[in-house]
């Protein structure tokens, strides 16, 4: 049995220790907001926060998870959007939407470290998150907007 802290709640799982965190979240705990895209940490769809840092859950084995996990479900809810989600909605970022949970968590980690990122810093931080719909211009605008909203909060 492994104990996992996700979105402030303790979960027990008997999944083998080499199971990537992604599949524990999705298939064992039913937290399907985190997405599978590649399984090799090259697209960022599976991004979650581990003690506030962005990690690729598709290549992080369960028994290597040391810290509190935040998934998209822990960021905000449809009834109460977090400021970063509200910025995403204001800029109507999502198209197919599949990569957006990962994009949002990657951006949340960026804003935590760099509250007012430059375009170059956004490029560096977001380069690992693929979007086949090409929502990059909207993501960039939403990150700048979220930075402003958070600094005024």
């Amino acid at each position: 049995m492994t104990t996992l802290r996700v979105n402030g709640t303790e979960h027990e799982t008997d999944a083998p220790g080499d199971t990537p965190l992604l599949w524990v979240l999705r298939d064992e705990l039913g937290l399907t907001g985190t997405k599978y895209g590649c399984g090799v940490a090259s697209c960022g769809a599976c991004t979650v926060l581990l003690d506030g840092d962005a990690v690729r859950s598709c290549t992080l084995p369960l028994d290597a998870v040391a810290g509190a996990v935040t998934t998209i479900e822990g960021v905000g809810t449809p009834e109460a959007l977090a400021p970063i989600q509200a910025a995403w909605a204001r800029h109507q970022v999502a198209q197919c939407g599949y990569c957006q949970p990962g994009q949002i968590l990657q951006a949340a980690a960026l804003l935590r470290e760099t509250p007012s990122p430059s375009d170059d810093q956004i490029d560096d931080a977001m380069a690992g998150n693929l979007c086949r719909c090409g929502t990059y211009p909207a993501i960039r605008a939403a990150i700048h907007d979220a930075a402003r909203a958070l600094s005024e909060a």
Partner: peptide, 29 residues
Amino acid sequence: RSLPRLDMVAKVTGTAEFATDIKLPGLKC
């Protein structure tokens, strides 16, 4: 006019349901 998209809130909160997200009792992968 540019309207707020009906799918936007679901897609920024991870609640939008894709075929790979379906949850059912006794489901196997």
